[in-house]
């Protein structure tokens, strides 16, 4: 990967982190409402994954979607405006934190019903295959979501129909407060791919380049027509499940231990250690990301609320 691209990945990860930190403050201040799930700790996953896709490849994920939105190229302004429910938000203030999407950037949403987007991913891939396009659908989900029927139905269908899907499990070891061991018959989620005759691989989720490499290989293999595959990416969320999680189910020492493997810190060490970037250059990126977040907040604050007369827009495509 060339230097410019490496630095861009670093910028994306820092931007997600700073944007969410500000988001958390704005949530406490009552400017963001609803459920908000932070991606802090997991930034390397979507950053590495989405860096490995081609423009024709679709991305679909669950409600923990701010990072994915940024990586897919949605400007921070529109992400922040959506968080604040403004008309300029990417979903025009209708979706909020859990429901961002940008069809023009091949990002097919943020979905809040656990597992429900997985059959949709199979359908997106079917659309491409049917039309003879060479796009791959990248479907991200938590390990907790692999216990619901939707997951199993979608994986089976994708294999039976040889659909171009890359299934990506973000194993952060907890579904809300339930550990993977307490909820899943096998805690190594990739084993579930075996049952559907699918190739699979486990990847270190704190190493953005490892994720990029694994994803690149997997996406191109899927594109070649060999059918769906699965990646299980081992990661950890540093914050609560959503805002207002009392976190009674885990010890703070465990969180601290994982924070030592902060994906941004790991990447920083790689970049400076391998002379890919100077500390100063990375500081500049930090400053730029902070400024972009500040601009995004200002943009969102200054944006109008959706008008009351727009309430019924988009209930149907056609006049009813």
């Amino acid at each position: 990967m060339d230097k410019a691209k490496l630095l861009d990945l670093y910028y994306q990860m820092v931007l997600i982190r700073r944007l969410e930190e500000r988001g958390a403050e704005l949530y406490q201040a009552g400017k963001i409402g609803g459920f908000m799930h932070l991606y802090i700790g997991q930034e390397a996953v979507s950053t590495g994954l989405i860096a490995a896709r081609q423009p024709q490849d679709r991305v679909i994920t669950a409600y923990r979607d701010h990072g994915v939105a940024i990586n897919c190229g949605i400007p921070a302004n529109q992400v922040m405006a959506e968080l604040m429910g403004k008309a300029t938000g990417i979903s025009q203030g209708r979706g909020g934190s859990m429901h961002m999407a940008d069809v023009t950037r091949n990002f097919w949403g943020g979905h809040a019903i656990v597992g429900a987007h997985m059959p949709l991913a199979a359908g997106l891939a079917l659309g491409d295959k049917y039309a003879g396009r060479d796009g791959v659908t990248i479907c991200m989900f938590g390990e907790g979501a692999t216990n619901i029927g939707y997951f199993h139905e979608a994986l089976n269908l994708s294999k039976v129909w040889t659909l171009p899907v890359l299934w990506v499990c973000e194993n952060n070891m907890y579904g809300m407060g339930t550990t993977v061991e307490r909820a899943s018959a096998v805690s190594e989620i990739q084993q579930k791919a075996e049952g559907y005759g699918m190739a699979h691989e486990r990847v270190d989720g704190m190493d953005v380049l490892a994720i990029y490499e694994a994803a690149k290989k997997a996406i191109e293999t899927v594109r070649s027509g060999s059918g769906p595959r699965m990646l299980e990416i081992m990661t950890y969320r540093f914050r609560g499940h959503s805002m207002g999680d009392p976190e009674r189910y885990r010890k703070q020492e465990e969180v601290k231990k994982w924070e030592e493997h902060d994906p941004i810190g790991v990447f920083h060490a790689y970049l400076t250690g391998n002379k890919k970037a100077t500390t100063k250059a990375l500081e500049e990126i930090e400053t730029r990301a902070k400024a972009d977040v500040q601009k995004a907040v200002e943009f969102a604050e200054a944006s109008p609320e959706p008008g009351l007369d727009t309430l019924f827009d988009h209930v149907y495509v056609e006049e009813v």
Binding site: G33, G34, G93, R94, G96, L308, T310
Partner: peptide, 8 residues
């Protein structure tokens, strides 16, 4: 379907 925006 209920929108996210509080006023709406």
């Amino acid at each position: 379907p209920l929108p996210y925006n509080r006023t709406l």
